[in-house]
């Protein structure tokens, strides 16, 4: 406990990694150096630190560092956008269900339970099939890949966040300050906005970080199945594209795998830290 005022080392490292990833995701386009889809036709599968490529090139001669920088935008973008939309929709539905009770609560809870009783990986595969191209021999027709992924991810995460928001709201609606607010005649809408939402949101934030990490993993896994981004367009896709070359140029697969792992680790650290902070606040009350 002697480090009370200093943040733990894991958190500092996770924060630094998070900043690097966010910087790449936002400003990656403006950085100098090769682009991820510029193929260097003279250097296929270069090892790290050779031929003018810091992390080498993959089997197509595509620069790995550039791929990682571009992948930060797609991988983080898809996962953060999906989890944010789910947080807004799922959170609102959960709070609504718990605060209104009655048939709304019964219908929503049943819907969440039914969706949660199919393993989420299986459900996401089904949603992706629904949103993808109508012509199976032409995968590029129909919606762009990132919209397909965001829509599918959002749909599978909503029941999780909805259920957590519902149970968290239930634990607040019976508190004295809510009863007092009701008895002095505050409207339901203003009770929700001023008393319930500000207390429920913190309990969702740690899940938000965990979920963002989980979605990066799911996107990677989908790429392995050939259903994620194409030809090295995301971290998972880089890993999937090069995984058959594991024996010959292992760095092309293991570097993106490491980057995914580091990002998920950082997000887990944030989640754990936030959970402890919020639990601590709760227990002090």
């Amino acid at each position: 406990m002697e480090h009370k005022n200093r943040p733990p080392l894991g958190l500092i490292l996770s924060g630094a990694w998070g900043v690097i990833c966010l910087f790449s995701a936002i400003f990656g386009n403006f950085l100098p150096g090769p682009k991820w889809d510029d193929y260097d036709y003279e250097n296929f599968s270069s090892p790290m630190f050779t031929d003018g490529h810091f992390l080498g090139t993959d089997t197509d001669g595509s620069d790995i560092l550039a791929g990682l920088i571009h992948g930060a935008r797609t991988s983080l973008g898809v996962s953060i956008l999906s989890i944010t939309i789910s947080l807004v929709i799922g959170g609102s539905l959960g709070i609504l269900a718990a605060y209104r009770r009655g048939w709304i609560d019964r219908v929503l809870s049943m819907l969440f339970n039914v969706m949660l009783s199919v393993p989420n990986i299986v459900l996401v595969l089904v949603f992706i099939a629904i949103f993808s191209s109508p012509d199976i021999s032409d995968p590029s027709a129909g919606l762009p890949k990132w919209i397909v992924l965001i829509a599918s991810f959002t749909l599978i995460v909503i029941p999780f966040l909805g259920r957590i928001a519902r149970s968290s709201t239930l634990s607040w609606t019976g508190r004295e300050f809510v009863l007092v607010a009701e008895s002095i005649g505050m409207t339901r809408r203003s009770i929700l906005l001023t008393h319930i939402v500000p207390n429920v949101v913190p309990s969702l934030i740690s899940i938000y970080c965990l979920g963002a990490g989980l979605l990066i993993v799911v996107e990677g896994g989908l790429s392995v199945l050939g259903l994620g981004f194409d030809s090295g367009g995301s971290w998972g896709s880089m890993l999937a594209k090069n995984r058959n070359e594991l024996a010959f140029s292992p760095h092309t697969t293991l570097i993106p795998a490491t980057v995914i792992a580091l990002t998920v680790m950082s997000l887990n650290y944030f989640a754990d830290y936030l959970r402890l902070r919020i639990d601590g606040r709760e227990s002090r009350i």
Binding site: G213, V217, G220, G221, V224, L239, R243, L246, T253, L254, A257, T258, I260, A261, V264, M265, L267, N268
Partner: peptide, 10 residues
């Protein structure tokens, strides 16, 4: 935190 498929490849 390491995804199973990434660990598997390693």
């Amino acid at each position: 935190a390491v995804p199973a498929f990434a660990l598997g490849l390693g």
